[in-house]
Nucleic acid binder design. Sequence first.
RNA 1: GCCCUCGUAGCUCAGCAGGACAGAGCAAUCGCCUCCUAAGCGAUAGGUCACAGGUUCGAGUCCUGUCGAGGGCGCCA
Length: 585
Amino acid sequence: MKQQVESLVTSALERLVAEGFLPGEGHAGVQVERTRDRGHGDFSSNAALVLAKRAGVKPRDLAARLVATLPPSPLIERVEVAGPGFVNLFLSPAAYQVLVPHILTTGAAYGCSDFGAGRRVQVEFVSANPTGPLHVGHGRGAAYGAVVANLLAAVGFAVQREYYVNDAGRQMDILAVSVWLRYLELCGEETPFPSNGYQGDYVWDIAASLHREQGDAYRRAGSQVFAELPPDEPVGNRENHIDALIARARRLLGDQDYRRVFERGLEHLLADIRDDLSHFGVEYDEWYSERSLAERGAVEQAVERLRAAGHLYERDGALWFCSSAFGDEKDRVVARDDGRTTYFASDIAYHLDKLARGFERLIDVWGADHHGYVPRVQAALAALGEDPDRLDVLLVQFASLYRSGERAPMSTRSGDFVTLRQLRKEVGRDAARFFYIMRRCEQHLDFDLDLAKSRSADNPVYYVQYAHARICSVLRQAAEKGIAIAPSPGETNLELLTATHERSLLEVLSRYPEVIEAAALTREPHQLAHYLRELANDFHTYYNAHQFLVENRRLRDARIKLILATRQTLRNGLDLIGVSAPETM
RNA sequence: GCCCUCGUAGCUCAGCAGGACAGAGCAAUCGCCUCCUAAGCGAUAGGUCACAGGUUCGAGUCCUGUCGAGGGCGCCA
């Protein structure tokens, strides 16, 4: 609807240019917008204000000229010049009458567009290390990334959803050692547990299943394991201690058995994460292995490309990338003095690989704690001749849980945290999804568990869902009374929708595609959440003000059509957010 | 110290890529079910948009600085 109005204004401007009344250039900043105030019409354009100076005319005179030039359209009832030179456009009732059959015939596709024209976009999100179950912080990234991906798909992009699996690297070794030590305990060995190890109960679970299936196959004497290791904290350095422990485990188990223990931990946690996300309504097209990059030699190649381009140098035995020449605040190491490449090197390779796979645009959803990492990745892309602007990093702030006003603890290493699974079980998937995306992502989120669980009007999830259920209920009533709920075709009877509440509901419904597009392009799912609340509100108000199942057959038909269109729009919006649209509550 | 994000009503937050008198939900006060689910609706009250400059016809929105909150600055991932 907005587009149609926009094109009217644009063609008027083009005519003024053709007539030599306006310069042909410099129309940037000209907008057609929804008005906030009904008194200002439905749409408003600032064109005269923006262009007056260049045209050498007073804004109001230009506005009058613009109004006179506007092509006639059945959409527009009247046009006014207002204030300093705004052009206010009032839509005709007919404009809204076509909307209802449009929504009903478009159905689930209402709000979708071809804006993206099938351009390929990749959204990578969550990508948590498989060293433990997902916690509530990951949940926010999951909900956010999933909805951003849904929104982009809705406006016509070819979206690929990807999870980057950090299955290489030291953290995974620490997990493997943690599992092994728990296993040794189950075998009856007396082994201290490193302060740096993963202490969660899930480590016991993995160790137990290993022990159940393999018996004592991986058993080694505790004294042998810890003989002459550098001391753990508080006496020594816990990093040195655990690194030595990893090396010892490798040596005592041999590469093959060590690998098996390692794989056991990885597979267990990955399966757990997949299952968890799947129940959360988050599905991926690709689980991309970091290890596979290294095994293919992609990391070496990336480093080689940097070297060939002359952006590497050696210092203190390590290999550095001069990222500071590309906007980073300091240079970064890509290969350590022992020759092992860093996580950063893998990440460069990974992003190059994404581009090589043909995505026009890359979206990474990261925790806000990684923000310092953004400039170096973009620096690497720039250094290799890629356009760093093709990578969009969206930083999601942490979420804190509040239960009866108290903040819930969060610490991955100690295993003392609320998991996404627990959250889902406690508040349900719908409430969790909705609450997670209610706030802008760069805003700290205080997740009120009591509110999310409350079955009351205070709870925005129920509020929106209730609007949907209420419509279904009305239709059930109608069916019970033997009233036909199949609406008449086309625009029949819609001219009867003249009440203020009906007009208002129609206006909100007509805005839905604009909301989807704006939310997708700005990557701001919260706009959709707010919109749905507004739509639900308008519906509830209407419900309270008018009876739908009235005696007058034609009016009843019109109203049923209107609430069917409302239900469809609510459904579509909830679906994008990943929240169910219940028929009863 | 340097960098990032944020600072709007008592509380939690919107404010649409600068626009016409600053919005919503809670909480507070007052109303509304012989009627399609009251998990609902209406009304009242409540704000120098942290502060100071600047850009602009026009600033909550853009720029600079100050103050305040959170986060980040490893040959960790």
